[in-house]
C-alpha cells in the first residue's frame, strides 16, 4: 500500500512539473506563468455566444467620458465589426 502511494505521489509530482513547464513555456517565464494563472485565467471565458446568436447589447462610455451609447445603436444597414481589447 505504501509503495502504491509512493508511486501515485511520484506520478502526480511529475505531472505537476510537466504542467508547470508547459505553462512556463506558454507564458514565457515562471513569473509570467504565475501571472497567467493568477490574473489571466480567471478572466478568460470562451462564452456561450455562437454564430447566429442575437448580438448582446451593452452600454458603453464615449471617449469624452461623459456620453454613453449602446452597441445596438451601431447595428444598422452594414455589418458591424466589434474589436475588443485594451492598451496593454
Amino acid at each position: 500500500m505504501k509503495r502504491l502511494l509512493k508511486w501515485i505521489g511520484g506520478v502526480l509530482a511529475v505531472l505537476a512539473l510537466v504542467a508547470f513547464g508547459v505553462l512556463c513555456y506558454m507564458a514565457g517565464s515562471p513569473k509570467d506563468a504565475y501571472g497567467m494563472v493568477r490574473y489571466a485565467l480567471p478572466h478568460m471565458h470562451s462564452g456561450t455566444l455562437k454564430v447566429g446568436s442575437d448580438a448582446p447589447d451593452a452600454r458603453l462610455v464615449a471617449l469624452d467620458g461623459v456620453n454613453h451609447f449602446h452597441i445596438r445603436e451601431r447595428i444598422g444597414a452594414r455589418p458591424l465589426v466589434l474589436v475588443f481589447g485594451s492598451f496593454t
Binding site: M44, D54, A55, I71, G76, F84
Partner: peptide
C-alpha cells in the same frame, strides 16, 4: 458589462450582421 456578455477579455473580434445576429 460588455466584456461579460461578449466574453471579450483580453481581446476578441466579432462581426454583427445587419439583422443584429452574430
Amino acid at each position: 458589462a460588455a466584456d461579460s456578455v461578449y466574453s471579450a477579455w483580453p481581446e476578441r473580434l466579432y462581426i454583427i450582421d445587419e439583422t443584429g445576429h452574430l
